[in-house]
Design a protein around this nucleic acid. Structure first.
Lengths: 97, 97
DNA sequence: AGTCTATTTCGATATTTTTCGAAATAGGGC
DNA sequence: GCCCTATTTCGAAAAATATCGAAATAGACT
């Protein structure tokens, strides 16, 4: 959770979430975000440590991908006991709907 | 989102989420977390700025409450376009189920 | 008005985080 | 084996954050 507590990292993560299972190469991410490669690498590393993102080598480039199950865990963790009350329906409405 | 990127604050928030609409007085939170009142006040302030938490005065004490709609927005923001892919069903399983 | 408790603001310090550039490494292709 | 591109590690500097104690403020009750 702390892993997403930084605008750059959140941005990065959202790009990957949107990219879906196709993922995105590190180089592409660097261009998109307009930050130093080393900085990106640092953030990526944190995201990977938390399990939010995974990587796969494809020839010379590294493809990064959002880890959906972990994201859902995170969401579950947030919502947690929230439904002990009324006025809360995190699962009731689809994002797609 | 950055607002939850700190262990203390996340903890604090989760206490309030669990507390539900009953909320919790600031003093109680301070005891629970075992931190200085000023520190708590600081974190609380941030949570309130982002809209994640709201306060209501009850006699001499301030009751803090998690703002569920905002939490759900946050979750929605996270999941966002995630369902453009498969392998992702954030809304499919209830936390309560 | 005075006093008491609950909470916030002030001011400072220590830690953590973010960020960069340069150099090192990794893997692939010639 | 050598070179080339993609990415990471290293080292450092700047900025932001977390934390505290003491003092100030807010509201309630007498």
């Amino acid at each position: 959770m702390e892993a997403l507590g930084n605008p750059t990292r959140l941005n990065l993560y959202r790009i990957l979430v949107r990219a879906g299972e196709a993922g995105r190469p590190v180089g592409y991410l660097q261009e998109s975000l307009g930050i130093a490669a080393s900085t990106l690498s640092h953030h990526l590393h944190r995201l990977i440590l938390t399990g939010l993102v995974s990587q796969e080598r494809q020839a010379t480039t590294l493809i990064c991908r959002a880890n959906y199950p972990v994201m859902n865990d995170l969401i579950g963790f947030l919502a947690d006991e929230c439904c002990a009350d009324a006025a809360c329906n995190p699962a009731a409405d689809d994002a797609a709907a």
